[in-house]
Design a protein around this nucleic acid. Sequence first.
DNA 1: ATCGGCTCGCGCAA
DNA 2: TGCGCGAAGCCGAT
Length: 450
Amino acid sequence: MVPSRVDPDRIRIVCDAPLRTKDYVLYWMQSSHRAEENPALAYAIERADAAHLPVVVYIGFFPEYPEANLRHLAFLLEGLESAARALKALGIHFILRAENPAAGVLSLARDAALLVADRGYLRPERAWYEKVAARCPCPFVQVEANVVVPVGTASEKEEYSAATIRKKITGQLDRFLVPIPVRAPARSSLALDIPTLAGGPAETILAGPGIDRSVLPSPGFRGGTDNALRRFEKFLSSGLDRFADNRNDPGTGIASGMSPYLHFGHVSPVTLALRAQEHGGPGVPAFFEELIARRELAVNFVTYNDRYDSYASLPAWAQRTLAAHAGDRREFLYTLDELEHAATHDPYWNAAQNEMVRTGKMQGYMRMYWGKKILEWSATPQEAYATALYLNNKYEIDGRDPNGFAGVAWCFGKHDRPWQERPVFGMVRYMNAAGLERKFAMETYLEKMR
DNA sequence: ATCGGCTCGCGCAA
DNA sequence: TGCGCGAAGCCGAT
């Protein structure tokens, strides 16, 4: 067999079986919704070419995904339209069906010589992969396409902090920061007669029943690889050079804006890292820290800690100290409804909440402040944790991203160290409005949110 | 304006 | 076993 361009550590044999004599190689596009720089797709094409078979791409669009609403689903479908155009240009038949992906992929696998999937890391995706693995009639291979360093290669256990995983990741960058361009397969599958749609085009699906319309699509972010790359080029030319110094400043608004696109796999972190490296300059290390070290620490967290979405994921010292202060008097107590409607006494917090509700993306530093205050203003730390996750997942375009779970947990002490003990927080790091004012021109941020 | 102290636990050197 | 050090902290002393 021709050696693959894809690093063997990205590849996991889920069901080992000989290639079958069948109609096509099936790529189950589950977490990497793109045709560009997609090692799972590249791998499927390599295997198909070697077997003289066409490649078919399948995605199961599943509006019942936990906590999904119109904001997430509209962005997701914009990305799929972009992927569909790119796949067509490559001569690849794209099957989009509104159904449970595990059921859909099993039905298409009946005629497949080989099943290739990309890899998501959360509980719902893992359950789908297990279900498919248990009943798959053909060999099943999974390729990690949404991280620079494969999660198991970076570390085989849950890491304690950014410091402990950082060197394990940066030591592997030379090996994994290499482009694997997707080349058109030798055989087109466009003429294959496989029904592509159940439920009609995207607009029809979104207008249909069973869609939670409580949160409107983001006015500023449109999904898709093309939109991601256009936005990123703007960031490279006008933001990256100031990224190291200004990324924390809520007023300057310097951010790549890539997290929604990374969340749905509209763009590859390898693409972004390589483009940033080409651009060069003082912002590159800081950008790598966010894009690779912190993001892949979050992937490590959800992979190895099966309580990633609960208070129980916190380190022992944090749970101990928060428990010791659970009975402390709270100076302010807000209900979920008051928080959700940004009706607190704190203009900075309200602005951050409004930013998230309106735009679908809260500024990075404010995310920390926002979470810390929810801890401070809730009756119990457990309740605060649930509130922060609920709001994050509902309003952020990239709600339910590993980064979201890790980010909320950080506010409660995860991946952090203890500090001076104080009421409510115990030894969990405290943040306050005076700190914001000391460091930043906060009026600029408030002005933007008015 | 700047600086030390606060506090736990990991990972490495010894 | 000891020691250095850690996403963005705050606070009080100088």
